[in-house]
Design a protein around this nucleic acid. Structure first.
Lengths: 220, 220
DNA sequence: TCTTAGTACTTTGCATGCAATGCATGCAAA
DNA sequence: TTTGCATGCATTGCATGCAAAGTACTAAGA
């Protein structure tokens, strides 16, 4: 269907930064550029709004641009959910319910992430990093958690397109990934949960705050 | 707008059990009964699908009917998120950032929930119970967590309409609520998180499994 | 120059028509 | 009795027209 086409196409464009945070989209514009009528575009925009990628802003919609406070919230939710998925994955591993091939695939992704990170290939490292986290969520066997996390990841990704991770922290991040991988591989749920959450919150504090929010009036 | 009307009206009907889990809805039916054209109905159905209340099923959509496995997943996510909101609420309380009036409102809801529960007024107790949990999530000050939890609560509510909580556990539930309230009031984040999560998972195990799923083909 | 009111235009929201799709029903044949 | 197929119909997907609502711009008055 055209609606799905519009949806995935727009998602790519937004996540790719072609439509940057704050950009305004109108039905007619998008319909013209995608060469379809307004109806499917309309539905696609509503779907993206439900996913939190755009939000209605008077006339039309704007690409979501999370404030610092919103990013804090997003990372808190992400931390809680990734702690859950890491824990569940570790439990499954402990109970022998994770196929060796799947575990090896995870280790492989981790290794490639570390390599890309170490060599400074950010264009590779960023998607690999996300894939590492997603693979864990898949191993957890909780589809709802996975879907929910995808939403949160998307929102965070859009709002942090400009500020790619500072290279100085890369070794540190890799070490955290290793710890998480080890906890899961060894089947230690509590440790996996704690490491995952700490890693996510750490990512927040080291990636962010280009300026201090200094308590100004922040009601939209 | 009519779309919003259709959306909230349908949400009521579904959460109220008028359209029971598994019920099939077609655009034309709904449009006729709500006396509007198919276009806003169509958008409303898509919005509900994004919220997980209905899902596309061949022609039209069906009201979501979570399997036991799906309910397990939903409760896991709910547990993780409510642990987060309880923790955040306790932190805010500890830091004196919760208005005394808000805290009293929470205590009030807790008391009314306990009363309704003790007196067996299930019709009151169920919405009050949800309101208790929602009030905590509101106190946490994390809008994303609140929105996400609303989604999960909705899905759970739809799928557990028939099986109202077994009366035998009511005293137990009230005790757990008291513990949670106490941990938040005293500003003890770790304890609040642990109690909240345990309470949610406990709700799952005591509310559910009317029959053992015993691995039969269970497509309706 | 600043403010205000009026007007015109952009853009959305909804309805409806048309075409396409997929499912059900019935019939025929094995 | 069952399987295969064809036909008809219910239902959706998309386009377009029209009306309403909000916004921006212009002009006039203070």
């Amino acid at each position: 269907m055209q609606t799905d086409v519009a949806c995935s196409r727009l998602r790519e464009l937004i996540l790719g930064g072609v439509y940057p945070p704050g950009a305004r989209l109108t039905e007619m514009e998008v319909a013209a550029s995608l060469r379809m009528s307004r109806t499917p575009v309309r539905e696609a925009l509503r779907a993206l709004a439900a996913d939190g990628l755009v939000r209605p802003a008077g006339r039309g919609v704007t690409v979501v641009a999370l404030e610092e406070d919103d990013l804090d919230e997003a990372y808190q939710v992400r931390g809680a959910l990734e702690a859950l998925t890491a824990e569940l994955a570790a439990v499954r591993q402990r109970e022998g319910r994770i196929a060796p091939a799947d575990l090896r695939a995870l280790q492989d992704v981790a290794a490639r992430t570390a390599a890309a990170t170490a060599e400074g290939r950010l264009a590779d490292a960023v998607p690999l990093n996300r894939r590492f986290h997603r693979t864990i969520a898949e191993l957890a066997g909780n589809a709802l958690a996975l879907r929910t996390l995808e939403r949160v990841w998307d929102q965070i990704q859009v709002s942090t397109l400009r500020s790619l991770a500072p290279p100085a922290r890369h070794a540190y991040v890799s070490a955290q990934h290793d710890d998480l991988l080890a906890a899961i591989t060894a089947g230690r749920p509590e440790e996996a949960a704690a490491v995952a959450r700490a890693h996510v919150l750490d990512t927040r504090t080291t990636t962010s705050h280009p300026y201090e929010p200094s308590s100004e009036g922040d009601r939209p």
